[in-house]
Computed example of a mutant assay.
Amino acid sequence: MKKITFLLLFFFASLNTFAQDITGDWKGVLKVPGAELNLVLHVTKTENGFSATLDSPDQKAFGLPVTTTTFANSTLKFTVENLAVEYEGVLDKDQVITGTFKQMGQAIPLILKR
């Protein structure tokens, strides 16, 4: 019985080690024609999932409310409806999110790092 209890404790402890944490600040550079815009995504955990705000320091825009934020199966998705922004990216083992930023028909690669 002690062996089974130990194995179960070890199993659940190891699951926590491999869990991916998306909360925190994520920074990236959006390369648009004629400019590069720094973006910062602030993700927090809520009772119902996740919440986020977006900063565009180069445009002096801070705390833009993100409409939806989801993270499942290593995939982060967020939208900012009033700016027609969509993002989808995959978090890898090195804590880098590689994805695509979409706005008004334009799709631009965007890599986010802590």
Rank of each mutant, 00 (worst) to 15 (best):
27 K>D: 14
50 F>S: 04
94 D>Y: 03
94 D>K: 10
30 L>Y: 07
107 A>P: 00
79 T>F: 08
106 Q>K: 14
5 T>F: 14
74 S>T: 07
104 M>S: 15
76 L>S: 01
105 G>N: 13
1 M>D: 08
98 T>D: 13
80 V>N: 07
65 P>S: 13
100 T>H: 02
41 L>D: 01
55 D>K: 07
79 T>R: 10
22 I>D: 01
61 A>R: 12
62 F>V: 09
69 T>P: 03
8 L>S: 10
34 G>F: 01
41 L>G: 02
23 T>R: 09
106 Q>M: 13
102 K>Y: 09
101 F>Q: 06
76 L>R: 02
71 F>M: 03
18 F>W: 13
59 Q>W: 00
94 D>M: 01
86 E>Q: 09
28 G>V: 00
37 L>D: 06
13 A>Y: 08
48 N>V: 07
5 T>K: 15
81 E>P: 00
9 L>I: 11
106 Q>D: 11
21 D>Y: 01
4 I>L: 13
66 V>S: 01
43 V>M: 03
25 D>C: 01
53 T>S: 15
70 T>G: 08
79 T>H: 08
62 F>P: 05
10 F>T: 11
22 I>P: 00
23 T>M: 07
54 L>V: 02
84 A>F: 01
90 V>N: 14
17 T>E: 08
109 P>Q: 07
3 K>V: 08
105 G>V: 09
57 P>N: 12
65 P>M: 11
9 L>W: 04
92 D>H: 07
77 K>Y: 05
110 L>I: 06
65 P>T: 05
41 L>S: 04
9 L>N: 08
104 M>P: 00
37 L>G: 06
74 S>C: 00
31 K>S: 14
48 N>D: 15
47 E>T: 12
16 N>W: 01
82 N>A: 07
104 M>N: 15
88 E>S: 13
46 T>Y: 10
45 K>R: 12
12 F>V: 00
10 F>G: 06
83 L>W: 05
17 T>Q: 11
47 E>R: 12
38 N>M: 11
55 D>T: 05
92 D>S: 09
4 I>R: 11
77 K>M: 05
51 S>C: 05
67 T>P: 01
11 F>V: 10
59 Q>K: 12
103 Q>N: 14
113 K>H: 08
44 T>D: 15
55 D>G: 03
41 L>N: 04
48 N>P: 00
49 G>K: 06
30 L>I: 04
81 E>T: 14
71 F>V: 03
86 E>P: 01
66 V>D: 01
24 G>Y: 02
26 W>V: 05
74 S>V: 00
1 M>Y: 08
114 R>T: 09
91 L>G: 02
98 T>Y: 10
53 T>D: 11
104 M>K: 15
78 F>L: 08
95 Q>V: 02
74 S>G: 00
